[in-house]
Amino acid sequence: MTTRIRTLIVCAAPVLSLVVTAVLAPLPFAVLVPGPTADVLGARRGTPVIAIEGARTRETSGELRLATVVSVTAPDAPVKSSDVVGAWFDEHRAVVPRDGVYPAGKSVERIARHNTREMNDSQDAAAAAALGHLGLSPKEVRVRLTLPDVGGPSAGLMFALGIIDKIEGDGRGGDLTGGQAIGGTGTIAADGTVGAVGGIELKEQAVRRDGVRNFLMPRGQCAKAMAARPEGVRLVPVRTLDDALAALKALRGAGGTVPGC
């Protein structure tokens, strides 16, 4: 072995060590994938997702399917640079800051409680928005929403639509869905304002995987949704609950124009 070769080996060893360390070192990211979709007009584990007391309800057809994402990164598992690079090149995965999924300094139990609180707040807002639209008093009509294993606020829009469908439908004896399966996501405020959600592109993929072709979503996220739109899914952007109801009317073929990004 020549002196030059020995020198190259000696110099390359630290560089190689740094490369290996960089590849194996844990990074502050989490990897998300499309989660299950859930029909808010149906039941989960034998319990209706939407239960209403104090108002007459109706039988519904069709589906209002809320979309979810799930983390494949365990709370205590490191994410390596190789995982991050792989996810960046995989349209079925997304890389997000770890603190957005598992806030630093919080235990798994505290994170679960936080997600549950966000879901409960979302349910309260959905009930307020839906009952307000119907002209009903929350003091007289009680809404109970049950959806195990789903946390966070992004189901609000679909909950509100489900409540309206259960009580009034389209106002003419028919269903909001027109018998179709409609997917959707979006937070909701008590005044009916629809807000942005995380993982919009993965939620598109979730509804497409489950055979849903129309996807209600926050209008403010059109650019991101368009960049990752799966073939065969129509994006239906809305800003408010009233927008969503008008879009469903147009999708039923009952008048109006279906909005698009």
Rank of each mutant, 00 (worst) to 15 (best):
G195C: 06
F215D: 02
D191H: 12
T116P: 00
D165G: 03
V197E: 05
R98P: 09
N115Y: 13
R229W: 06
K224A: 11
N214E: 13
N120G: 00
T187H: 05
I200G: 02
V101W: 03
I200N: 03
M226K: 13
G186K: 03
P148Y: 10
A128K: 14
A155H: 03
G169N: 04
A128R: 13
A155K: 02
K224I: 03
Y102A: 10
Q221D: 07
I163S: 00
G184V: 08
P148K: 12
A112T: 08
F159T: 01
N115Q: 13
I111K: 01
A189W: 00
A112R: 13
M158Y: 08
N214T: 11
D124T: 14
R113V: 14
I188C: 03
I167S: 09
V194D: 06
I163Y: 04
G179Q: 09
I182V: 15
G151T: 05
G171F: 06
P138R: 10
L202Q: 03
R142W: 05
R113S: 14
L147D: 05
G156H: 02
G198A: 14
F215V: 04
I163L: 07
L134N: 09
V194P: 01
H133V: 06
P97E: 07
H133T: 08
G132W: 04
R144S: 15
E204Y: 05
G156N: 04
V101F: 03
